Computed example of a mutant assay.
Amino acid sequence: MDWIKNLNQVIDYIENNLTGEIVNDEIVKLAGCSIYNFQRMFSYIADKPLSEYIRSRKLTLAAFDIINSRERIIDIALKYGYESQDSFARAFKHFHGVLPSTARNQTVQLKSCPKISFQITVKGANDMNYQIEQWPAFKIAGIRKHISTADAFQIIPQIWDTAWKDGTMSKLLELFQKADYRPAGFIGMAIGGQWGNSEEMDYCIGVTNYVDHPSCNYVPVPEGMEELDLPQATWVIFNADGELPDAVQKIYKQFYTEWLPNSGYQLEDLPAIETFMQDNRQEVWIAVKQK
C-alpha cells in the first residue's frame, strides 16, 4: 500500500539523519500529509510521540558509540544534536538510567529503542461506523488557545475545564440553540499542519455557526469569541459514542492503523474535528481526499 510505503520512507529518512538535521518539509514530502497530521498519526500507531521516538533512537545509538568507541562524550553529545555535555547526560540518564560516563566505565544494563517498521495487519475484530460526506464550507465560532504540541494531552482538558467555569460554555450553549448545524454539538479542534507548526498549535472549542447552504442562516459570533473558516471538503465521519477519552482515542487508532491504509484515501491538510453531544455521543470528522 502507498500509505504504508510512505510511512516507512519517513522512518528511513529519520534513521539516515539521526546525526544530522531532520527537516519537517522532507517528512511532509515523503508522507504526503502535513507534519501535524503525520505526528498525530505516528503517535496513535506507535503509541509514542514522534519526538520521543527520534530522541530514543538517538540515545540508543549514542549508547553504542559510548561503549564501542573512544570518542569524547562531548563529541558524541554534539553528534546527536545536544548543545552541551550536561544536557546530553541528563537525557541519557533519563532514558538509560545511568550517566554516559558510567556506561563507558562499568558494565551496566542499557535500554534500546529499535527502528520502527510499519506494516498492515488485517484484524477485522472491531467494526467502525462511518460515513463519507462532501460537506460545504462552514464556520465555527468559539475560543482558541495557543499551546505547546508536546503538552497538548495535559493542557486540553484544562482548557475545557476552564471554559465550563468561566462562562464560555454557557455562551456556546446559547449559540448552539440558535445554530443547530452540523458538525453538531460542542466542537473540539486541534489546528496544526498548514495552520501552525510542529512545536506549537492552537486548540479551539466552539460551535458551528454557519454552513454554506441556502437553507442556513448565519448566526453572529458572540462577543469575546472569534470565527474560524473551514473550506468545502470530503469528510469521513466516525461514530465515537462511549466514555471519554477512550471512545475517541480508539477511533483515531483504528482510523490510522486499519481504515486509512485500506481506504484508497489520503489525509487532507485540515484539522480533525471532534464533536461532543449529550449522553456520551461523539463524532470524529477527518478530512480526506482520494489518491
Score class of each variant (00 low, 15 high):
Gly242Val: 11
Gln290Glu: 13
Lys79Leu: 13
Ser198His: 09
Cys113Glu: 10
Ile237Gln: 11
Trp259Lys: 05
Cys33Glu: 09
Ile35His: 01
Leu228Asp: 15
Leu228Gln: 09
Leu173Glu: 14
Met169Glu: 08
Asn24Phe: 00
Tyr82Met: 07
Phe238Gln: 06
Arg90Asp: 15
Val28Asn: 09
Glu258Tyr: 01
Asp12Ile: 11
Tyr210Asn: 03
Thr19Tyr: 05
Ile74Pro: 04
Gln278Gly: 07
Lys253Met: 07
Gln232Ala: 15
Asp180Gly: 10
Gln282Arg: 14
Asp151Trp: 05
Ile120Gly: 08
Val122Cys: 07
Pro49Glu: 03
Gln282Lys: 11
Lys291Ala: 15
Val219Cys: 08
Thr60Lys: 05
Gln131Tyr: 07
Ile45Phe: 05
Asn68Asp: 06
Lys291Leu: 12
Ser263Pro: 02
Ala163Met: 04
Asn6Leu: 03
Ile120Leu: 13
Tyr44Val: 01
Ala184Phe: 02
Ser215Asn: 13
Ile120Pro: 04
Phe255Lys: 00
Trp135Cys: 07
Arg40His: 10
Asp12Trp: 04
Glu227Cys: 06
Ile4Phe: 00
Phe186Ser: 10
Gln134Val: 07
Pro183His: 12
Asn24Lys: 10
Asn6Pro: 09
Thr208Ala: 05
Leu78Trp: 12
Val288Met: 06
Leu244Asp: 07
Pro49Val: 04
Phe186Gly: 01
Asp246Glu: 09
Glu133Ser: 02
Glu227Gln: 13
Ser148Arg: 09
Asp202Ser: 08
Trp285Tyr: 09
Arg40Glu: 04
Tyr53Leu: 07
Gly188Asn: 02
Ala190Tyr: 00
Asp86Pro: 13
Thr19Ala: 00
Lys115Cys: 15
Gln177His: 08
Asn37Thr: 01
Val219Leu: 10
Met41Gln: 00
Leu244His: 04
Tyr53Thr: 01
Gly196Pro: 11
Ala141Arg: 03
Glu268Cys: 13
Trp259Cys: 07
Gln194Trp: 14
Gln154Thr: 14
Thr168Asp: 07
Arg182Val: 09
Gly185Tyr: 10
Trp195Glu: 13
Ala89Ile: 12
Gln290Val: 06
Asn239Gln: 14
Gly20Tyr: 10
Asp269Asn: 04
Asn6Gly: 06
Asn126Arg: 08
His94Met: 15
Asn239Glu: 11
Arg182Lys: 08
Ser263Arg: 11
Gln232Leu: 15
Lys139Asp: 15
Ser117Glu: 15
Tyr53Asp: 15
Gln278Ser: 14
Tyr36Leu: 14
Ser43Trp: 00
